[in-house]
C-alpha cells in the first residue's frame, strides 16, 4: 500500500540524512521525498511517499518518531488530504510539434515558461497520476528532460500538522 507520510523535523544539518539513512538501513522503500523549511525557520517539513504493508508502515512511523530530530509524524493517507507535485518538462518543439505541445500543455493546464526556437519548458502541477498521464500522453521522443519535485501533501480541513 502506498502511504504519504508528513514530518516536521528540526532544520539541522544532518536531519535529512538521519531520515534517509533510516530508510536505507532498514530496507524501507522511498518513492519520493521532499523537504524544505517552514514558516518557522527552525523547522522543516518533509513529505515521504512510501509503500509497505500496514505492519511496515507502523514500524516506519515508530522508527521516525524515535529520531531525535523528528518533531512530529503523521500518515496523511489515513484521512482526506491533498497531494501536489510540480514537474518541469523540457520538450523538443519544432515545426508542427510546436503547436501540438502548446495544445497538450493547455489540456493539462500546464504553462510554458521557457521558449527557444527548438524547445519549450512546460510547468505542470497536480497529483502524481496527472503528471504521469501527461508524460504518457506526449511523444517520448520529444521529451528532452523531466524534473519532478516529488509529492507535497497536506491534510484537508482542520487537520493541521504543527507543534
Amino acid at each position: 500500500m502506498r502511504h504519504v507520510l508528513s514530518l516536521l523535523l528540526e532544520n539541522e544539518a544532518g536531519a535529512l540524512s538521519r531520515v534517509s539513512g533510516l530508510f536505507s538501513a532498514r530496507g524501507y522503500n522511498i518513492e519520493s521525498l521532499t523537504v524544505a523549511p517552514t514558516e518557522d525557520a527552525s523547522m522543516s517539513r518533509m513529505t515521504i511517499v512510501t509503500t509497505g504493508s500496514d505492519d511496515v508502515i507502523e514500524q516506519i512511523t515508530k522508527q521516525l518518531n524515535k529520531l531525535v530530530d523528528v518533531v512530529k509524524v503523521v500518515d496523511l493517507s489515513e484521512a482526506p488530504h491533498i497531494e501536489r507535485e510540480l514537474m518541469l518538462v523540457k520538450v523538443r518543439a519544432v515545426a508542427k510539434d510546436r503547436e501540438e505541445m502548446k495544445r497538450m500543455a493547455d489540456i493539462f493546464r500546464g504553462r510554458i515558461i521557457d521558449v527557444t526556437e527548438s524547445s519549450y519548458v512546460i510547468e505542470l502541477t497536480g497529483t502524481q497520476d496527472k503528471l504521469d498521464s501527461f508524460v504518457g500522453a506526449i511523444e517520448p521522443a520529444l521529451v528532452l528532460e523531466t524534473v519532478r519535485s516529488g509529492v507535497c501533501g497536506v491534510g484537508r480541513g482542520d487537520r493541521v500538522l504543527k507543534i
Partner: peptide, 11 residues
C-alpha cells in the same frame, strides 16, 4: 519503553 520494539517481530 520503546514503541518500535513492540509488534516489530511478532504481533
Amino acid at each position: 519503553i520503546d514503541p518500535s520494539s513492540i509488534s516489530k517481530r511478532v504481533k
